[in-house]
């Protein structure tokens, strides 16, 4: 029985640390669904947010194995969290702009750029809603859809 989990990992900002984490997942056959990394402001640490899935025993092992890596400072298993994911999409100019805009609004997004041959829209919302948004977007024949990974914060 597989469950989805969001894990945040606080690591020292040093070269090779990302490989240690992804290497651990690869070597032990764990899944990474999404992964985001950025330095934590005013510190020597970075924060990784990993969405993974597995049985409770696998999740427990993932967390213990992450802890075991020397540059890992903290592993946070989220219980009560706010998750957001970002998506960017390019839509041909020929599409109904007003409809596109309405759709973006419905998902707290906006048109961020209008160019010669297309418009670019952006939405940042919960992963489930982003999925719905991407689905709805398909009626506008998007040329490109780029999803970011999940970022999460404890409530």
């Amino acid at each position: 029985m597989s469950e989805r989990r969001v894990i945040s990992v606080i690591v020292s900002n040093e070269h090779g640390v990302l490989t240690r984490i992804t290497g651990l997942f690869a070597a032990r056959g764990y899944n990474i669904e999404t992964l985001t990394v950025a330095p934590i402001p005013d510190s020597k640490y970075s924060r990784l947010t990993i969405v993974t899935s597995g049985s409770p025993r696998v999740i427990e092992q993932i967390i213990k194995q992450l802890h075991k890596l020397i540059p890992v400072y903290k592993v946070i298993e989220h219980e009560e969290l706010i998750e957001k994911e970002m998506v960017l999409a390019k839509i041909p100019l020929g599409e109904r702009l007003a409809d596109v805009e309405a759709l973006c609004k419905a998902y707290n997004g906006s048109i961020v750029n209008v160019g010669k041959d297309g418009i670019i829209v952006m939405v940042a919302d919960e992963p489930k809603r982003v999925k719905n948004f991407v689905h709805a977007l398909s009626t506008f024949a998007p040329k490109e859809i780029i999803r970011g990974g999940v970022v999460a914060i404890e409530r």
Binding site: R57, E60, Q61, K64, Q65, H67, K68
Partner: peptide, 8 residues
């Protein structure tokens, strides 16, 4: 001494 050994 290694928590990851326990319950693996």
């Amino acid at each position: 001494i290694d928590p990851s050994s326990i319950g693996k």
